[in-house]
Design a protein around this nucleic acid. Structure first.
Length: 497
RNA sequence: CGGGCUGUAGCGCAGCGGCUAGCGUACAUCGUUCGGGACGAUGGGGUCGCCGGUUCAAAUCCGGCCAGCCCGACCA
């Protein structure tokens, strides 16, 4: 009561966005830092969200013909050295294993012993080790396309880390494919980008721009990097997924060759694509508010939580039985392809506190059931995406639950889309550009002549980068706002995570 | 990896040479409460991040290391 006007999360987004983010992660009990530098512990609530991301994405990968496999955590140093750009890109952030044994030291401690002939790199990504394997698997054009995915952890020794957004170790999936022709490989790259964009929109309720990275932003060793870019509530861009057309670079480095239908030996054309636990960071920063996490129903570990109102002197049995029956009916209802996920919180703690706990965890619908409701065969509910509560006939609620969840899901997408569109502007002069990014953040669409020198300059001046060259470009040619030279198309600029 | 700040109970913090280390909150028990963060009483919980140095005496001063946060460079 005394705290009625206060928000659950302090500071608020407006007061201190980065700190707010950390507090949301903590308040929702999703993850925490560990004793190991830069590495996080993903707690059950955070991991459950990842499991739903995995499950749905995995289905989409299967539907597009991919199968899962698993490759080693360790990559021989010599493998990483095979592709020049690749080495250069990742060398600065690799964990290196040099020994395979520990021996007792003089002070009772342990010292590494048994030095390896060749150091092993903890994978920062798996192109090279998978390439070496694919070289053995691929002999004939009949072996193609080879469509493989792996769910794994990778390590990139980051200097500056933030839970979910950038950690030294993170979980992801990496798809790796080999194709007989360039066209087919490009098609695959674009297809998987489409899968990511669809997943982001339909499951995460995050609208994304699809596009291509500039030369300076592309994946080390790729011919072309496609990406999905989302706008967070602080108007900064988050790269939420990438899909790479690798040309024949890795095929040549790993010797992936096949005999075509003419009996000619050819190098394969490869792709790779991935999304990571960073998506959870994007989810938080897209939807959450000053009361904590807000989850899109499709990914919420619990979609509806039932909170029995238990008076000390009242009949707990009756209330709980009513809740159990309600939960059972809801679980027999489908939302999307799955039964609604319902939880009853029977913990004996204060109602307000219990309720706030679920607000902070972002559960889409909270239902309170007390003796008064039971007498009238009603429920009392609250939506996470709106203020206020509603009273509803019990059976009517069961019938409407799935459509309510869908309404919340769609509402979140609409809200996020509106925010993005309201903060996307088209500018046609350098002054306007500098003026915008000096005072604001957001997406700016503007003509650019393709020069990396200009990219470098605006990065230094404003900390702004080209997020992507949009795929759905309809603007056509124009004049570069920085150089006055001819520009083939408009590109998207923004500050990024 | 550079610059700044920080590390004391689960969490948030005070104490910054002096003898028994404290407060809020959370936790446990009891009572009164109970439909959006209750109140009272009692109680449990700490090798003051780690290692070393200075000192009669170190949470407190010094050095090194580890971890975190912010700002850069780098990156999903």
């Amino acid at each position: 009561m005394a705290k009625q006007n206060k928000t659950a999360i302090s500071p608020t987004r407006a007061e201190d966005y980065p700190e707010w983010y950390q507090q949301v992660v903590k308040a929702a009990d999703m993850a925490e830092t560990s004793a190991v530098r830069g590495c996080m512990v993903i707690k059950p609530w955070g991991y459950a969200i990842w499991e739903h991301i995995q499950k749905n994405l995995d289905n989409m990968f299967k539907e597009t013909g991919h199968v899962n496999a698993y490759f080693p955590l360790f990559i021989p140093k010599s493998f990483l050295e095979k592709e020049a750009e690749h080495v250069e890109g990742f060398a600065k952030e690799c964990a290196v294993v040099t020994h395979h044994r520990l021996e007792a030291g003089p002070d009772g401690g342990l010292i590494p012993a048994g030095e390896l002939d060749e150091p092993l790199i903890v994978r920062p990504t798996s192109e090279t080790i998978i390439g070496a394997t694919f070289a053995k698997w691929v002999q004939s054009y009949r072996d193609l396309p080879l469509l493989i995915n792996q769910w794994a952890n990778v390590v990139r020794w980051e200097m500056r880390t933030r839970l979910f957004l950038r950690t030294a170790e993170f979980l992801w999936q990496e798809g790796h494919t080999v194709h007989a022709t360039k066209e087919e490989a490009v098609e695959e790259t674009e297809k998987m980008l489409g899968v990511y964009a669809t997943f982001a929109r339909d499951y995460m309720a995050i609208p994304v721009l699809t596009g291509v990275k500039t030369e300076s932003e592309k994946f080390p060793g790729a011919e072309k990097t496609y990406c999905i870019e989302a706008m967070m509530q602080d108007k900064k861009a988050l790269q939420a997924g990438t899909s790479h057309f690798l040309g024949q670079n890795f095929a040549k480095a790993s010797d992936i060759k096949f005999l075509d239908d003419q009996g000619q030996l050819q190098y394969g054309w490869t792709t790779s694509w991935g999304v990571s636990t960073r998506l959870i960071g994007g989810l938080i920063m897209t939807h959450s508010d000053d009361n904590g996490l807000v989850l899109p129903p499709r990914l919420a570990p619990t979609q509806i939580v039932i909170l029995p109102v238990l008076h000390k002197d009242g009949d707990h049995g009756e209330v709980l039985a009513y809740c159990e029956a309600l939960a059972k009916d809801l679980k027999h209802t489908f939302y999307g392809d799955d039964p609604i996920r319902v939880d009853i919180d029977k913990r004996d703690i204060r109602g307000g506190e219990k309720s706030w706990g679920w607000v902070k965890k972002g559960v889409p619908l909270r239902i309170e059931v007390g003796p008064r409701d039971i007498a009238e065969n009603k429920i009392f509910g609250a939506r996470r995406d709106e203020d206020g509560k509603f009273s509803m006939d019990r059976d009517e609620f069961v019938a409407k639950a799935a459509s309510l969840l869908e309404e919340i899901q769609n509402g979140l997408l609409t809200r996020a889309t509106t925010l993005r569109d309201e903060n996307t502007v088209e500018l046609d002069s350098e002054d306007a550009f500098y003026d915008f990014f000096t005072n604001n953040a957001g997406f700016v669409k503007a003509h650019w002549n393709g020069s990396p020198v200009i990219e470098e300059k605006i990065k230094n001046d404003l900390n702004v980068t080209i997020r992507c060259i949009p795929l759905d470009d309809t603007d056509g040619e124009g004049v570069c706002i920085f150089s006055g030279e001819k520009s083939p198309r408009k590109v998207i600029f923004g500050k990024s995570y």
